[in-house]
Write a protein that binds this DNA or RNA. Structure first.
Lengths: 107, 107
DNA sequence: ATGCTTGTTCGATGCTCATCAAACTTATCA
DNA sequence: TGATAAGTTTGATGAGCATCGAACAAGCAT
């Protein structure tokens, strides 16, 4: 559904952003919770609606965009609905330990 | 020199704050650089003036307070001037790997 | 077709916070 | 006793951003 949707099933992904951008993205409680739920989802794609509570759709979409642009998540389309995936491997390569330790501390 | 200065040489320290507070503290570029310089200082006390550039004294003092209240640094007085120290051990205990990996990514 | 659902975009609003200058405190030095 | 230096605090200002509702786009159902 997005205007800039690619034809195939998965968005082209941006490189993982610099540390400051990643930390800024993770410093918001709503986004931190989104990442927590993505990690709890066993690293598979999770549908949008399962990633937030208590904020409006438009706010959630804004946070998705922030996470995506920081290189933390990837967007894909399964069963016609949007899903998000934690980019564990790329993050580990670019910023070893950072996201892993944060996710661990989140339990 | 602070109004709430204890009599002895080192401030009483607050507990390490929760993950969200710590991330929020580290998400600012000025504070991130302060932490980088503290880490580069080999975990010893570093004098205030060596921890920042490009911002005013009052701004720097504000950032010091933020780091201290997040439990990331400790303030002490050596040779009559204020020093700051990275609380490596307490941070590692409260949030294993988080600050360590961030500092490592900072090199 | 018509509607319903899902997600994005836009515009507006309000709050948080980074920043500075100025005044103040304490200590050190002449 | 001044005078200077180092940090802190306060008050004000401005920018960024989290939030929402509304309008829109795309897909699926009936």
């Amino acid at each position: 559904m997005p205007l800039d949707t690619p034809v195939d099933a998965t968005d082209t992904v941006a490189p993982v952003a610099d540390l400051h951008t990643v930390l800024q993205a993770l410093a918001d409680p709503v986004r931190l919770e989104m990442v927590r739920r993505l990690a709890a989802g066993g690293d598979g794609p999770v549908r949008c609606s399962a990633l937030y509570d208590g904020v409006s759709k438009s706010t959630a979409s804004h946070h998705f965009k922030t996470l995506r642009e920081a290189g933390i998540t990837r967007r894909s389309y399964v069963d016609g609905v949007v899903h998000h995936t934690l980019r564990r491997d790329e993050l580990e390569e670019a910023l070893p330990g950072v996201v892993t330790s944060i996710v661990t501390a989140l339990d």
